[in-house]
Amino acid sequence: MKLAQRAMERLEAWPDLSAGPASCGTGRALRSVHSEIVHFHSDHDVDLHLTEGAIERFRGDLQESTAIRLVPGSRWVTVHLDCDTDVDLLLSLVSVALKAHQTGSSPVGLQARSECNFRRVTVMPR
């Protein structure tokens, strides 16, 4: 079973998420009542919708991870699933994203790209 498929199946069991097509037009999405949270674009690449506050709070850790790609000005992070540990990281970050979207969004007047990072991130093999 592919890593992205395994991650999606695990996340589909979460009561706060429901599946559907990704708004970017490529792949499947899981969404909460507040917004789309995860886009599964391929067997290895997933975009995760975090708030600006969550990205800033965890920026140092996100930048150190070889599985994470950040795009300046985006509220989405790209997670490259290359091993089971990356799936565990994704699940943890989905939990962070759900909490972040429940407690608020970006500060008023601060516009950030709302579309996911698909086609804006190139993941090189490790």
Results as ranks from 00 to 15, higher is better:
120 R>F: 13
33 V>C: 06
103 T>G: 08
63 Q>I: 11
45 D>V: 05
90 L>F: 15
8 M>A: 14
115 E>P: 05
14 W>N: 14
89 L>I: 07
38 V>F: 02
36 E>I: 04
82 D>V: 13
22 A>W: 15
79 V>K: 00
5 Q>I: 15
1 M>F: 07
52 E>S: 15
99 K>S: 15
30 L>K: 04
53 G>P: 08
113 R>K: 15
55 I>Q: 04
57 R>C: 09
57 R>Y: 08
101 H>N: 15
102 Q>W: 11
59 R>F: 01
7 A>R: 01
70 L>R: 13
125 P>H: 10
33 V>L: 14
60 G>R: 08
5 Q>K: 08
6 R>I: 12
117 N>L: 12
58 F>C: 02
5 Q>D: 11
80 H>I: 06
117 N>W: 03
41 H>I: 15
1 M>P: 08
114 S>E: 12
29 A>D: 04
114 S>C: 08
38 V>Y: 00
94 V>C: 04
87 V>R: 05
91 L>T: 15
53 G>S: 09
89 L>Q: 09
35 S>M: 13
91 L>R: 13
67 A>P: 01
102 Q>C: 12
47 D>R: 07
107 P>H: 06
123 V>A: 12
69 R>I: 02
106 S>K: 12
121 V>L: 07
72 P>R: 05
78 T>V: 06
72 P>T: 09
80 H>F: 05
27 G>P: 00
9 E>T: 03
5 Q>Y: 12
59 R>M: 04
112 A>W: 00
42 S>C: 06
71 V>H: 12
117 N>M: 07
75 R>G: 05
88 D>H: 09
50 L>Y: 03
96 V>I: 07
30 L>P: 00
35 S>R: 08
25 G>Q: 13
47 D>T: 11
123 V>W: 03
64 E>K: 15
47 D>Y: 04
125 P>Y: 09
100 A>C: 01
31 R>A: 13
57 R>G: 10
43 D>F: 01
12 E>Y: 07
54 A>T: 13
124 M>W: 15
2 K>A: 14
39 H>P: 05
89 L>Y: 03
1 M>I: 10
13 A>C: 02
1 M>C: 08
92 S>T: 15
47 D>G: 05
49 H>K: 00
42 S>F: 10
115 E>G: 07
98 L>T: 14
73 G>Q: 05
86 D>L: 11
37 I>D: 01
34 H>Y: 14
83 C>H: 11
61 D>V: 08
111 Q>E: 14
122 T>N: 02
55 I>R: 01
44 H>L: 14
56 E>C: 06
30 L>R: 02
4 A>G: 04
104 G>K: 01
51 T>G: 00
48 L>P: 03
106 S>L: 01
9 E>A: 11
114 S>D: 13
80 H>G: 13
15 P>Y: 10
18 S>D: 07
28 R>F: 11
83 C>S: 11
105 S>H: 14
89 L>S: 03
35 S>I: 06
21 P>I: 08
24 C>E: 11
83 C>I: 14
90 L>M: 04
100 A>T: 04
36 E>K: 00
100 A>L: 00
19 A>Y: 01
125 P>S: 09
37 I>C: 07
24 C>D: 09
116 C>S: 10
11 L>N: 07
35 S>E: 11
87 V>Y: 08
17 L>G: 13
37 I>A: 10
81 L>C: 05
122 T>L: 01
95 S>V: 06
26 T>K: 06
